[in-house]
Design a protein around this nucleic acid. Structure first.
Lengths: 161, 161
DNA sequence: GCTTGCGTTCGAGCGCGCTCGAACTCCTAG
DNA sequence: CTAGGAGTTCGAGCGCGCTCGAACGCAAGC
């Protein structure tokens, strides 16, 4: 499959900014959260850069099922983590919680719903593409404005304040 | 100035999808709302793809000043339209209303605040770049998932339903 | 003249996606 | 034995960005 294409695509998007997080992000992206053993809520929260509050919220609205350990604490297995990685990736690209609930419901209904899920994904892909275009325009507009203000349009403003 | 660069950049982002709106969008982008004479709220709303409600809201929270005609109706002059084009462009790239209020306040204070405005723009530019990366990752993830579901990763799903 | 339609002001309401506080349980370290 | 810290459940609250409804004004067309 064209996984390498996707990878290189993703990697080219990672030049410049951020730097040290690129590897981590790629791992998250393809859910190489490999680790077999269950994680605590804190660990998952740190991994996905979200709060434990939000993780509990996602569970309670039915986005993910999470087991408990002996003392009643949440225990996120590989499956749960995988799903959460996917969910946060979709959230980051603007998919509504409502739609994720729909998707998850379909996923839980089994293979019969693959076509419908595929449709949802294709639609979302188009949405992302539209967003990319809008953002690119906004970037151009912002850089244009920066130029009129006499700012240089360098790689980053990181070292300013 | 490097306006042509920005233009071609923006244009390359417009291939594929949408088609007929590209010219319109470019016009909006560089606020070639050229038209000298004032516009009605409906016209501005249509131009910017937003509701009259929202335009009134923007005015009331101080983002833009709008005059009235003889019968008390809003009359958007070129300046107001230019500002609204800019504001919606910033909104589309995720700048918070609060920040736009700040920016507008600075703009109304005169040229002394140009450096601070420049800072805000540089920061926003970086934000947009981060978003572009996140979105690109999400797109890769989505296409990956589509592939695992057996979908072809063509240019668009437009002709499906 | 009267309706229709688009505009006005004002304040309230809403959907989204968290976010928080209270009250409680459990484990661990000192 | 006790204090601290991290987890739990439950329901309520909040910030954002609109969005709407009510009551009204004005101007054009039948």
């Amino acid at each position: 499959m064209a996984t390498d294409d996707l990878m290189s695509k993703a990697l080219t998007a990672l030049d410049e900014v951020d730097g040290p997080m690129s590897v981590e992000v790629i791992h998250r992206l393809v859910d190489v959260s490999a680790a077999a053993d269950p994680m605590t809520i804190r660990e998952v929260a740190d991994l996905l850069d979200m709060s434990p509050h939000t993780l509990r919220y996602y569970e309670r609205i039915g986005l993910v099922e999470v087991g408990r350990d002996a003392s009643g604490h949440r225990s996120y297995d590989a499956e749960a983590v995988r799903r959460l990685v996917f969910l946060t990736r979709m959230r980051l690209s603007g998919m509504a919680i409502r739609d994720l609930q729909h998707y998850v419901r379909l996923a839980d209904e089994g293979d019969d719903t693959v076509p419908e899920r595929l449709d949802l994904l294709l639609e979302h892909r188009d949405t992302i593409r539209r967003q990319l275009k809008e953002l690119t325009l906004s970037l151009a507009a912002t850089e244009y404005k920066i130029a009129t203000y006499g700012g240089h349009t360098g790689p980053s403003s990181a070292g300013k304040a």
